[in-house]
């Protein structure tokens, strides 16, 4: 019978090894970001793939989240006669928290999986080796454009998601909850502070970086054919979603701890 302590030790050592490998991968990636050559064309392509093509799914998520938020807050606040707070709470909830987190989770599923599957397939079909033999650094050619594109486009997506989400809440507020249109909009914008939006966009940039990093890391480390690529894809999605939730707490602490 195996020693349970040994099993725990093995798991812990394996965890430390993974942290070490991921740290080295992150270091090489960041080093490649600041050293030439920089592939602008690939970066723009990735911005289209990651940003533009994710717009429908992020937009739909934001629209219905804003709508549901307005309904739920109305029902809850009606218990103590604070229905007028609906626009204020919808806009703050969306810009600070739900916009970036839900967009991050959707992108983690869509973009993180796509990156891991693409790079994983390149790994198992020797395309990464081919890149090296053609004197091209895979970190600069594959990782940097994805990291930069995801870090830049996720805040833009979240800004659009914030607007669409507020619009979802507004539509429900006007048509379902009988708010006055001008009052709803006035309450929304009067209550909103720059820091609410800024903190959400910073979170989005962090989430975008983590999603691309996890996709690239697991894609580069996939092995063993189709099954390996499938595992890399799953690992990329799961790890990016977990990291989004963990980092969300720390970024929130950093902004609002005082």
């Amino acid at each position: 019978m195996s020693n349970p302590l040994a099993a725990v030790g093995r798991i812990f050592l394996s965890f430390l090894a993974t942290v070490g490998r991921l740290s080295m991968f992150t270091g090489r990636s960041l080093s490649a970001v600041v050293t030439p050559p920089f592939y602008w064309r690939l970066c723009l392509q990735q911005m289209m793939t990651i940003g533009y093509y994710s717009l429908p799914v992020v937009g739909m998520t934001a629209l219905f989240t804003g709508a549901v938020l307005a309904l739920q807050i109305y029902l809850g606040s009606a218990r103590f006669g604070a229905e007028s707070a609906v626009p204020n709470i919808v806009v703050v909830g969306l810009t600070r928290e739900l916009g970036p987190v839900l967009a991050g989770l959707m992108l983690g599923g869509r973009v993180g999986a796509a990156i891991a599957a693409e790079l994983g397939t390149m790994k198992v079909t020797e395309q990464l080796d081919a890149l090296i033999t053609l004197q091209t650094n895979p970190f600069r050619y594959l990782v940097v454009p994805r990291l930069v594109a995801a870090t830049i486009t996720t805040p833009i997506l979240v800004l659009i998601a914030d607007i669409i989400g507020v619009m979802g809440g507004y539509l429900v507020g006007i048509h379902r909850l009988d708010f006055n249109s001008a009052v709803y909009l006035k309450n929304t914008f009067d209550f909103l502070e720059a820091m609410d939006v800024t903190s959400g966009l910073v979170k989005a940039a962090v989430f975008g970086f983590l999603i691309a990093l996890m996709g690239c890391y697991h894609g580069f480390n996939s092995k063993g054919g189709a099954q390996g690529v499938g595992k890399a894809t799953t690992d990329a999605v799961v790890s990016s979603l977990i990291l989004i939730l963990i980092s969300n707490y720390f970024v929130t602490e950093a902004f609002f701890s005082q």
């Binding site: 390149m122 079909t125 020797e126 395309q127 081919a130």
Partner: peptide, 8 residues
Amino acid sequence: FQSAALFD
């Protein structure tokens, strides 16, 4: 390369 390893 054995599989040609062309970039898709």
